[in-house]
């Protein structure tokens, strides 16, 4: 019977085979920080003259598996800021809890007029993201923060896992940045100057159209999505929208599908 400390609490070698010490001397660095596990795909955001529209689908993928189909990636923060998350879902939950703690603490001030606006939240989140990237343990997300800034003008900005920030009248994360941005930018020929000419209906229609395109072309997307319209009066969040008028008629021209073999 081996009574030495290295054997304490361990099953006996003669019964269970020699103990596997390989876990103690791993020369390999940690790699779990280098890839996300369960992920959400694109988030789209567009400014219009009285506010911002933001949308994201309800899917959380586990690699190529469409794992969770009722995931709400658009989160509201009082009174009228909305954050859409793309990327790792557990990191999204961590950030959500962080922001909830922030909201509870802000609520402790005697008046609600002090509350953090979208710009303040964006500054805070971008610093959190940058700090984590500098620790080589990033929060694997790219998020859009939408709301109003301190001058009551519509505000839309992004922050990602590297701590990079962008602000623009139209923004998209993930696949959306490649597929949806050009379509959304059609609304804004003069960048920021065009915002005042865009109506809510135009913005919402553009976003819905882009969500359809993304479902056609992004293999990790779904046809159910959430869309939020933020105006001074508050946030109008619809969480169970379905894509309408999908046209899959082009599918039969794709080689390998339909009747064509070549």
């Amino acid at each position: 019977m081996n009574h030495y400390p290295q054997a304490w609490g361990r099953p006996r070698n003669d019964v269970y085979g020699p103990y596997d010490h390989s876990y103690t001397h791993s020369a390999m660095p940690k790699t779990h920080t280098q890839s996300p596990a369960v992920t959400g795909t694109s988030v789209l955001g567009v400014k219009f003259k009285d506010g911002v529209v933001i949308a994201a689908d309800n899917l959380a993928s586990y690699g190529s598996l469409a794992r969770f189909t009722d995931v709400k990636r658009i989160r509201t923060f009082a009174p009228n800021t909305v954050i859409g998350f793309g990327g790792d879902v557990s990191d999204m939950q961590y950030l959500d809890r962080l922001l909830q703690t922030l909201e509870i603490n802000e609520n402790y001030l005697s008046s609600s007029e002090h509350s953090l606006n979208a710009r303040n939240l964006h500054t805070y989140l971008s610093k959190v993201m940058y700090k984590r990237r500098s620790d080589f343990n990033p929060l694997w997300n790219m998020m859009l923060i939408a709301g109003f800034d301190e001058d009551e003008k519509p505000f839309l900005a992004s922050a990602d896992l590297l701590g990079t920030t962008f602000s623009s009248p139209t923004l998209a994360t993930g696949f959306g940045a490649h597929l949806a941005q050009p379509l959304l930018r059609r609304l804004m020929p003069n960048d920021e100057e065009s915002v005042k000419d865009v109506t809510k209906e135009q913005a919402v229609d553009a976003v819905r159209a882009c969500m359809k395109v993304l479902f056609y072309r992004d293999a990790r997307s779904m046809d159910k999505y959430s869309i939020a319209v933020i105006t001074k009066d508050g946030v109008d969040l619809k969480e169970d929208e379905k894509l309408e008028n999908q046209s899959w008629a082009f599918a039969d021209q794709i080689r390998g599908y339909g009747t064509q073999v070549n």
Binding site: H114, N120, L121, Y124
Partner: peptide, 12 residues
């Protein structure tokens, strides 16, 4: 100012 980009509320 550093964390939120806003001046601290006086009450706080």
């Amino acid at each position: 100012k550093l964390s939120y980009g806003r001046p601290i509320p006086v009450e706080r």
